[in-house]
Amino acid sequence: MDLWGIIVAVILGIVEGLTEFAPVSSTGHMILVDDIWLHSKDLYSPEVANTFKVVIQLGSILAVVIVLRQRFLDLLPTKKNLTKNQEGRLGLTKVIVGLLPAIILGLLFEDYIDKYLFRKETVVLGLVAGAILMIVADKMGPKDPTVKSVDQISYKQAILVGLFQCIALWPGFSRSGSTMSGGVLLGMSHRAASDFTFIMAVPIMLGASSLSLLKNWEHFNLDTLPFLAAGFISAFIVALISVRFFLKLINKIKLTPFAIYRIVLAAVVYILFF
C-alpha cells in the first residue's frame, strides 16, 4: 500500500465521519467523492473497496456509541434500568418498536433495492425528495414541541418514526434526514428526534455491517490492513467530533440548512453525471 492509498482511506473516512449521521446522505457523498474523484476500486478489487466502506461505517458507529454511551447503558435490561423506565425513561422496547418497520421491509426488499435503487439517478431523486421532507418538517412541526427529551417518546411515536425510517431504504434519502423529519412532524424537538434517530441507527448499522464483514473477512490481510485501519480511525475521530457538534446545534439551526445543502449536492451530482 502506497502513500496515496492511505490518503484515499483518510479522505473517505473523513467524508464518512462527517456525513453518516448528519441528514445529508452519506451515500450521495460517497458517490461524489469516491466514484468521481478518488476511485478506491482502482486501488483494490471492488470487494475490498466495499469492505472498506463497511469498516469506516463501523468507525462512525463506535463514535456515536461513545457520545451517547449513557443512553445505551440505560437501555440495558438491568433491574435499575427497568425501574427507571417505569418512571418515564426511554426503554429498550420502544427502540425495538421503532426498528421493526425498517428491518422487516429491508429484509423483504433487499434484493430489489440493491438491484434497482443503487443508481446515480435514484440517489439524486432521494437527495431532493429528502430535502423537501426536511423543509416541510421545519415549517409544519410545532413551534413548542411537546416531546423535548427522548425519554418522553411514546410507543405510537416510536413506531411512526420507524415508518419514516423506511423511506431511507431509498438511497440518497438519508436515514437521519427521514427519521428526524418524522420525529419533528410528530411533535418532538429537533434534539429529541436526533437522539432517537442515532439510538435506532446503531443496531441496524451494526447488524448490517457485521454481516457484511463476516462475508468479506478474507479481505483482511497485511496488504489491505493499513488501508482499512486508516479509514476506520479517520472516520471514528471525525464522527466523534461532528456528532457532538451536531447535537449541540440542531435545536438552533434545525433541518432547513441541511436541506438546502442537499439540493446543492444533488445539482452537483446531476451536472457531473448527466
Rank of each mutant, 00 (worst) to 15 (best):
M1V: 03
D2W: 00
G5Y: 01
G5I: 00
V8P: 08
V8C: 14
A9N: 03
I14A: 13
V15P: 05
V15C: 11
E16M: 04
A22G: 01
S25W: 13
I31P: 10
I31T: 06
K41I: 01
D42A: 14
D42Q: 12
D42G: 09
L43D: 10
E47T: 11
T51V: 13
I56L: 12
I56V: 15
S60L: 01
I61Q: 02
A63K: 01
I66G: 03
I66P: 01
R71V: 00
F72D: 06
L73W: 14
P77D: 02
E87C: 03
G88P: 06
V95I: 15
L99C: 13
P101N: 05
P101H: 06
P101K: 08
A102I: 15
I103A: 15
I104Y: 07
I104S: 11
L105T: 11
L107C: 14
E110P: 05
D114H: 05
D114N: 14
L125C: 14
A129D: 09
A129E: 08
M134Y: 10
M134Q: 08
I135N: 12
I135D: 12
K139E: 13
M140V: 15
M140N: 02
G141C: 11
G141E: 06
K143G: 14
T146D: 07
Q152F: 05
Y155C: 02
Q157A: 07
I159P: 03
L160F: 14
L160R: 02
Q165D: 10
C166K: 07
I167V: 14
I167H: 02
L169D: 12
G172T: 09
S176M: 08
S189H: 00
A193D: 08
F196A: 01
T197G: 03
F198P: 03
F198G: 00
V202I: 15
S209V: 02
S209K: 03
S210I: 15
S212Y: 06
L213A: 07
E218A: 12
P226V: 06
F227Q: 09
I237W: 01
F245A: 06
F246T: 00
F246V: 01
L249Q: 05
K254V: 10
L255Q: 04
T256R: 05
I260W: 12
Y261E: 11
R262E: 13
V269G: 09
Y270L: 15
I271E: 11
F274G: 13
